[in-house]
Simulated scan of single mutants.
Amino acid sequence: MPLQDNLSGYNSGGSDPSLFFLSGIPGLEAMHLWISIPFCSVFAVALLGNCTILYVIKTEPSLHKPMYYFLAMLAVIDLVVSATTIPKSLSIFWLNSREINFTACLVQMFFIHTFLSMETAVLLAMAFDRYVAICNPLRYTTILTNSMIAKIGLVAFARSFLLVVPLPFLLRRMPFCQSHVISHCFCEHMAVVTLACADTRFNNIYGIFVTLFIVGLDLTFITVSYVKILRTVFSLASKEQQLKAFGTCISHLCAILIFYTPVVLFAIIYRFGHQVAPHIHILLANFYLLFPPMMNPIVYGVETKEIRYRVHLLFQGKSF
């Protein structure tokens, strides 16, 4: 009953119009404690895995190469996404701490969407790295200099920042005169937009434009890179050379599938799965946020020989 009382108060606008209320996973409130177990496990694995990747890359001079710099960027992004979303979700599951200030909600939304946009940009940069390494190996060190890598990182951040920053400002100007209950574990853009008591067509169109522009553009260039990579690989003389060259791309291809598959599934269900239960939408949205930060360090730790060897030494307590 206390939960229903809170919901009723916030649905009517509450006494504080700047205070919003995260519902967690609607329909599964009774299972929140059990749901928190995989959330907490994923958070622990994401923290341990990505921090380990960063530590190994930082402390091992032989890993100070473009491919590993991009992997370090990916690890930082995954840590930010995890730290921005999971602690609040766990506070809902464990402490029933559902309130969130509207400004804090907009900040969380900004960080989530900015860093997800950066992740797809870094995946594109990693595709470019593999393209240069396989298709133009003699110029690899002259093209992917430290200066160029820093510029790519800055461009990835600038693009994400400039495209996402209008979203919270557009929402701040909206009136929220009725429900203040966000049907989610975190402040996702569309979940907040649906609560506004105003015409939200521009917000909807802009949100779709940003998603299609970023994902569509990056996926197109990633596909083009791999078409060129495959052409070069198949032109190599021996089967052994082909397998060795393409083997350097396996980790990156896994990271692409890990990131884009949940995004595509979520987009399809969100747009067309009107008969799907709300809690399935919420669980899938959490899945596409939490799965990549957990899986990326595992994939690169298993598939990349240099990292696997040094992580093994690290956990054995031996120096590099």
Results as ranks from 00 to 15, higher is better:
I214L: 11
C185V: 08
L79C: 04
A46L: 01
L195D: 15
Q241S: 11
R130P: 11
G216K: 02
L28G: 01
L265M: 09
G9Y: 08
Q242Y: 01
P38V: 12
L313H: 15
E240N: 03
Y300K: 02
M1D: 14
T142P: 04
G153F: 08
M190A: 07
A44Y: 09
V181N: 07
V45E: 01
K318V: 13
V302Q: 06
F102R: 05
I86W: 00
I25V: 15
L243H: 06
T142E: 15
V165R: 06
A30Y: 08
F246Q: 03
R271N: 15
K318Y: 06
L289M: 13
Q4G: 01
L47C: 03
T103R: 05
D218T: 11
G273W: 14
S183Y: 12
L74G: 11
F320D: 15
M148W: 11
L95V: 03
S183V: 06
I214S: 10
I149D: 09
F176E: 14
D78H: 07
I258Q: 00
S36E: 04
K318S: 13
A127D: 14
S319A: 15
Y140P: 04
W34S: 01
F186Q: 08
Q178T: 13
T194F: 04
I86M: 04
Y288I: 03
L106N: 09
S18M: 13
S160K: 11
M190D: 06
G247M: 03
N101E: 09
Y68D: 13
L195K: 01
S183A: 07
N50P: 01
G273R: 03
I298Y: 12
L257Q: 10
L236D: 05
F110L: 11
R173I: 01
R173Q: 13
T85I: 12
F246P: 06
I298S: 03
T85G: 00
L284W: 09
K239R: 07
I112Q: 12
I37D: 08
V215C: 02
Q241M: 10
M118S: 06
S147V: 09
T220G: 06
Y69P: 00
W34G: 00
I307G: 10
E306Q: 14
L33D: 12
Y140V: 09
M295A: 15
F43N: 02
V181H: 00
C254G: 02
I100N: 03
L284D: 13
F209A: 14
I298E: 15
L138N: 15
P137I: 00
I307V: 15
A196R: 08
F209Y: 15
L313Y: 13
A46G: 07
S62A: 13
F209N: 10
L230M: 12
I35P: 00
I100R: 00
L63Q: 09
G49D: 14
L7G: 04
V42L: 11
L22R: 02
L289D: 02
S62V: 14
L284Y: 09
A30K: 06
L90V: 01
F128N: 05
G153H: 10
I35K: 09
H274D: 14
Y300I: 06
A150Q: 12
E306P: 02
H189P: 05
F259V: 12
I298T: 11
F70C: 03
C254W: 08
A133I: 13
S235A: 12
S235W: 04
P168L: 02
A156S: 15
D16H: 12
L19G: 03
F287I: 07
T211R: 03
V155Y: 12
P66Y: 09
D5F: 00
F102V: 07
